[in-house]
């Protein structure tokens, strides 16, 4: 759906707002570019001059030190000037609108905005109103999308599994509220993963989710059977008890990833989590820290993938 806004008339990426609507070649280009930056990040001097003289503004209307830091590191390794703005605490509290904030920052000659907002579509609104040549990266908008997370997840899968065309991938837990799950699903489907499953109780699955091209499972064991990749999702604490779920304990019993449940998956299945983890809720420590977990490499690859996105948007990759 975001195709026209994200891609220029020549098909080049001008904003990264969602993995939905991006052609497979664009996704592969990002992953291939990230490959090169993984090696940069392994060097002693982890810096390249691709974004020298450019300014990147991290504009976070919703607080997240972790995600913001990964964008900051990625931009700095590309030699960009980075400005971090935690707007949640300042302008909007004074009644300034999202667009006013962005226009003010644009007047300070920003080249790239990394936007996180609690409302779905906020980065699209920004993208529609910035000057030509200014790029917007969605760092998470409501339940809608978190495309760099989705991309780093498919990067990690490609790193370990090489070929997407025979994989069975399961996404487990709170799909309803998860922008990560949506970004993963679109990226996986576009890259040719034949079977993507979502596993969870009916209260945590969004309406008509099967129309996104996934198979729906409510039973964890059945859903995990034969999977090559198991992606768990964070369950926000405010959702652990209420009308959607009775308790974190009951959720863990049915859908928490334990060694026993993981045994249903392929013996060489990898386990992923976008972080931060609730150990003992959606994932047990023995799995999170176990031999099949690739959760720490996800974090490492996340820097390279974000560098790739920034470099491509800046026209330097």
């Amino acid at each position: 759906m975001s195709r026209s806004l994200q891609l220029g008339p020549d098909g080049r990426l001008v904003h990264l707002l969602s993995t939905e609507g991006l052609p497979a070649e664009t996704l592969r280009h990002i992953l291939d570019t990230a490959d090169q930056f993984v090696s940069v990040n392994e060097r002693e001097v982890k810096k390249v001059p691709l974004l020298r003289g450019r300014s990147l503004f991290n504009v976070f209307f919703e607080n997240s030190t972790r995600t913001r830091t990964t964008f900051e590191i990625a931009a700095k390794r590309l030699s960009a000037d980075v400005v971090n703005l935690n707007i949640g605490a300042s302008s909007t509290a004074k009644g300034e609108s999202l667009l006013d904030t962005v226009w003010n920052l644009q007047a300070m000659d920003a080249d790239m905005f990394v936007v996180r907002h609690k409302e779905a579509g906020a980065p699209h609104l920004v993208a529609r109103h910035v000057k030509p040549g200014v790029h917007v990266i969605n760092a998470g908008d409501g339940r809608h999308a978190h495309p760099t997370q989705g991309l780093l997840d498919v990067y990690t899968i490609r790193h370990y599994k090489k070929d997407f065309s025979r994989l069975v991938v399961a996404i487990v837990g709170d799909i309803l509220h998860s922008r990560v799950a949506r970004s993963q699903i679109h990226a996986l489907k576009t890259l040719g993963v034949p079977e993507v499953r979502v596993i969870g109780p009916r209260t945590l699955l969004p309406a008509d989710v099967e129309r996104l091209g996934v198979r729906v499972f409510h039973d964890m064991a059945a859903g995990l059977r034969g999977c090559d990749v198991v992606m768990t999702l964070r369950l926000q604490s405010e959702r652990m008890s209420g009308p959607l779920l009775p308790s974190a304990g009951e959720f863990n019993k049915a859908y928490g990833l334990t060694p026993e449940k993981l045994a249903q998956a392929s013996p060489d299945a990898i386990v992923m989590h976008p972080g931060p983890m609730n150990r003992g809720v959606e994932i047990d420590s023995s799995v999170a820290d176990g031999g099949q977990s690739v959760i720490m490499p996800q974090v490492t690859f996340g820097i390279a993938v974000r560098m790739a996105v920034m470099a491509i948007l800046a026209g330097n990759a």
Partner: peptide, 11 residues
């Protein structure tokens, strides 16, 4: 429905 699910809009 499908559209709200795709867009992440509360239904």
């Amino acid at each position: 429905g499908e559209v709200a699910t795709r867009l992440g809009l509360s239904p």
